[in-house]
Amino acid sequence: MQKLGEFKLPHFFNYPPYFTLQPVRDTREKQIQLWKELILDYCKTQKTFVIALEEEFPLFTNHVIERSLTHEAREAFLSALVSEGRAEWMDKGHRKCLILWHRIQDWADILIQFAKDNGLEDGVVTIEEIRSGTESQGTDLHGIDRTILNRALKLLEQKGKLVVFKGTSTDDEGVKFSV
């Protein structure tokens, strides 16, 4: 089986027609389903958060069979993810897409778990510590996209589970949990 680094590619990835958006509805739905799963799976294992449609992305080209997804196909697959709440367009022109391999709600739950695991139920932690500190090492939070983290924090703030406060500079924000 073909691999991308450590990532095992599904068989359909080697079947040329899967790189052309199918005109018949039933076939297209199946095709989109397979691609959606592949994109989420890949992003999760590679910790990829943003896909830029016009740039090289390992899944969009298969050099072995010399096929590449058209812009139309890329947009169709990502739009399908967006409509399911598993992705969000970052601009109106649909050039960049934020991939939510965990939904925002799930990220919020992970944050709460993180606080509990590290005895921070009433504690304070900086955002940088969440993203790159030793406490988050080995968890999905390590290296989390800033936008996604902010969204999850905002959701928890609305629920009164934490307060985000500013430090002296913008990249010095902190979080006070009250779980």
């Binding site: 040329p16 027609p17 790189f19 052309t20 199918q22 005109p23 076939t27």
Partner: peptide, 22 residues
């Protein structure tokens, strides 16, 4: 194609549409 027995492939260099039969 309509019956779902074929899939089109427009990605080949020669630009000719291929009909694949899974």
């Amino acid at each position: 194609l309509d019956e779902g027995l074929a899939m089109i492939d427009d990605g080949h260099r020669d630009g000719r549409r291929r009909y694949w039969f899974p």
